[in-house]
Amino acid sequence: MIRAGVANLDRSAKGKFIVQPAGDQVAELKKIEHTPFFEKVRSTEMVSLYGNEEVWKAFGYQGASYRFGGYLHHGFNDLNWLPDPPEAANPKPA
């Protein structure tokens, strides 16, 4: 399915899809966005790209916190651009 899908993209793009300008690539992908090939690539890429720890760093996502004892002492309530809610609504940590 992947091979055939890539071949179809190259054929449709009248040349190597990979070297087309970004705008043309998006236009080609729009045409096939409801095909099983596209959905397979999209969903796989979604999981692998946004599940990649190297990518997380670029997004400011710190991921697993167990290894350093949770965010309790690592910024779980460090937001300082709004006032702290009153203690009745927002008790202090134990």
Partner: peptide, 15 residues
């Protein structure tokens, strides 16, 4: 039993 301390997400919700 006391409530839990709120996190950043809660601070935004509260305000």
């Amino acid at each position: 039993i006391p409530g839990l301390p709120g996190n950043n997400n809660f601070k935004i919700m509260y305000n």
